Computed example of a mutant assay.
Amino acid sequence: MFMYKIGVVGEKDAVIAFLALGLTVKAVESPDEAMKAVDGMAREGYGIIFVTETVAKDIEETIERYKNQMLPAIILIPGSKGSLGIGMAKIKENVEKAVGVDILSKKEG
């Protein structure tokens, strides 16, 4: 059975704990470092790359490039200062595209 590697890219204080789970961690300090880390992991065949929202907002083009590919799956996670709401917005967008309607919004009624 083949297992894909899982990587995490983000600011050091947000991603360091993932080392304890045995994941590959790339602590980055600039958008350029983040782009290189994501592209490098994609080239190396990572199946899932978690990227903190704080970093993701600065490398949208890089993340967009992998959006329509099967692998790697790029999943946004909250950064060290909490969620910016970007990850949930992307999930809602994808669910709406798949289902045809926004089923995740809380509706008053």
Rank of each mutant, 00 (worst) to 15 (best):
I74P: 04
A42R: 00
K81V: 11
Q69E: 07
P72R: 08
M88C: 02
K36V: 01
S105I: 06
K106Q: 13
P31L: 02
N68R: 15
G45I: 01
M41V: 07
G40F: 01
A56N: 09
V8G: 02
K97F: 14
L23R: 01
I86D: 02
L23M: 15
L71F: 06
E33F: 09
F18K: 12
G45C: 01
V55L: 00
I59H: 02
D58A: 04
G87N: 06
Y4V: 13
V9L: 09
F2R: 15
K106I: 11
I49K: 01
A14L: 12
E29V: 01
Y46Q: 00
V38H: 03
T24K: 04
K107G: 06
R65V: 03
L71A: 09
P78Q: 15
V99G: 03
V38F: 12
E29P: 00
I86Q: 13
G40V: 07
E93D: 11
I6N: 05
A73G: 07
M88H: 03
L19F: 11
K26C: 11
D39C: 04
K81C: 03
V25N: 01
G10Q: 05
G85Y: 02
A98N: 12
E33K: 10
E11L: 11
G45Q: 04
P78W: 12
Y66A: 05
S30Y: 14
V99K: 03
D32W: 00
G109Y: 15
E61M: 09
T52C: 06
I86M: 15
T52K: 08
E44M: 04
V8E: 01
K57R: 15
I91H: 11
K5P: 04
G109C: 03
L71I: 07
M41K: 02
P31N: 06
N94A: 15
V28E: 03
E93M: 10
S83I: 03
I63G: 12
I63R: 05
F50D: 03
G79V: 03
A17C: 09
N94E: 15
A56K: 02
L23P: 08
E60M: 10
E108Q: 09
E53A: 05
A56R: 03
G45H: 05
P72L: 11
E29D: 12
A17H: 09
I75F: 08
D32C: 00
F50Q: 02
A73K: 08
I48M: 09
E93N: 10
D39M: 03
E61F: 00
G82D: 12
G45E: 00
I59K: 01
M1E: 08
N94F: 13
K90E: 14
F18I: 11
Q69K: 14
D58K: 10
P31E: 06
G109A: 13
V99E: 12
A98Y: 12
E60R: 14
V99T: 06
K67M: 10
E53S: 02
I16V: 15
A20M: 14
G82V: 15
P72A: 12
V51I: 14
D13H: 13
A20V: 07
F18P: 08
P72W: 05
P72S: 14
D32Q: 11
I16M: 06
G79Q: 06
I6M: 13
G85Q: 04
G100D: 06
A17I: 11
K57Q: 13
E108S: 13
N68H: 15
G87T: 02
G7R: 02
I16R: 09
E53F: 04
S80M: 07
S83V: 05
F18E: 08
G47E: 01
K97V: 01
K12H: 12
D58Y: 12
